[in-house]
Amino acid sequence: MSAITAQGLTRRFGELTAVDNLTFEVPSGGVVGFVGPNGSGKSTTIRVLLGLIEASDGVATVLGEPITHPERFAHRVGALIEAPTFIGSLSAWDNLRSMAALRGLPEQRIHEVLDIVGLAGREKDKASTFSLGMKQRLGIAAALLPDPELLVLDEPTNGLDPAGIVEIRTLLKSLADGRRTVVVSSHLMSEIQAMADDLVVIRFGKLLYSGSLSGLMEDAVEHVIAAPEFSADLPQLIASIESRNWTYTAHGDFLHIEVPAASSADVGRAAHEAGVTLGQLTPRQDNLEDVFLRLTGGTDAELAASRGQQRSPGATP
């Protein structure tokens, strides 16, 4: 059974279509990245799926239940929607106790989730004294209270420092056991690439890709980045590359040559034959962000300009 399915899911705010005819499927188990730039409609889609706002059109299910009846799946889903939200003057324990009471859960479960997120021993501290990373972990603890089959985390690494990001990433990967599906929305593609098994990629509310990360990365292009030691040698280097019919783009003195990474020796040889000493020779493979930009044909600004209109579909009123 799929964790989430959506067919033609649409949400309009007046004339603005924030989620535009989305059709995708999230498989059960593992980490699923819900990817798109800021304002692409990720949060709106999550809110629609969790029953916080109604869909304008389309059909969707969560854990096999229609999203029009969230009461049928709410007890099997944990969510951290946008920023973690707590009453700062309450202790971490009381904040979690309040959420556990709402779900009819015993207090023993609070100990368990605090252990999982590494906050055991800090439960008596007020939530307002927590660092951003600790607040994120507390938010994840609250989402884990019902021992959910589906964990939906909206931008869980927002505002964290690199160490905090690694910490959350490690935690999320450990949570995605065979039984549990962890859906992580983020505009940070490098983060998603580091933890996701599957991807749903959207932009301007439209679906760009749905499937495995490895499937998408099959389109990744291998480059060799080469730069002459002296700028004056650049024309000879370019001539040598062109003579071999290699595709390249120039970024100042740096040439991004589209050849398999294993061919960096060939580039070095070509430079040597042209009498050019290289200052840099680096094999590199496209990352998710590169693939995403290739998929969309440019940056947001470029695409918006080409569409002749500027819009921000993810912005909810």
Binding site: D57, G58, V59, T61, E65, P66, T68, R72, H75, R103
Partner: peptide
């Protein structure tokens, strides 16, 4: 919007009424 009809599942943890929990 249209809906997909599926079997309703029971909530195994909601042993107390929702209003009391709330």
């Amino acid at each position: 919007m249209t809906t997909t009809l599926t079997t309703k599942t029971t909530n195994p943890i909601a042993s107390t009424p929702g209003l009391v929990n709330t």
